[in-house]
Amino acid sequence: MNDSGRTLTFNIFRYDPQLPGDQPRMQRYQLEETDGMTLFIALTRLREEQDPSLKFDFVCRAGICGSCAMVINGLPTLACRTLTTTSQSGEFNLHPLPAFALIGDLSVDTGKFMREMTERIEGWIHADEDGDIHSLEQRMEPELATAIYELDRCIECGCCVAACATRQMRAGFLSPVGFMKLGRFHLDPRDTRTDADYYEVLGNEDGVFGCMSLLGCQDNCPKNLPHQVQIAYLRRKMLQA
């Protein structure tokens, strides 16, 4: 099974904030590489075989649920679909995502952040009333449906938040994930909000005008969402609003 014969090294951030006296530190582990090994497989084996106290979050392990984002060799990305073969040295430095509350080791609380973000931007379809569900649905151009889905693909993994320099400096900054959501609802004709409504959440320095355009979001989005285009688009719209 093991073609490479490599021994991988993992330097993992360890800290249990609930354990009295515990201090943040890096801990080193080693593991034989196997064929097709991902960081999901490697970390699971480390927990089961070497250290049951290791905390990290995997759910789908297929790159679709967004649970396992962490900082891998300095860059935020999804651990489940990071193949160990992507490291030539065979060494991985693993840290939890910054900008989120730490639960322990590599596990962070993205849920609270994302829920608050959705509440803040009212990230749902605003319709005057719930319509009839027995009759033909409102029509939509096929190309528009596809375009909305393109922006709807965000999995709220938090990589863009962790990669955002503005967010690191200003805790109230809405963050790229919020812009992506707003772009998605702005494009959707089923949402009755006007540009003026959007301006209220976007048109300030905690909104789209606060962005320093360093575009860590664009570079690190695991779903390759068009953050750069969205931010530019929202700015233009907000200038007109």
Binding site: I125, A127, E137, P142, D188
Partner: peptide
């Protein structure tokens, strides 16, 4: 569809 799913058309 009313709640936002962009069903293919």
């Amino acid at each position: 569809a009313q709640w936002g799913v962009p069903w293919n058309r």
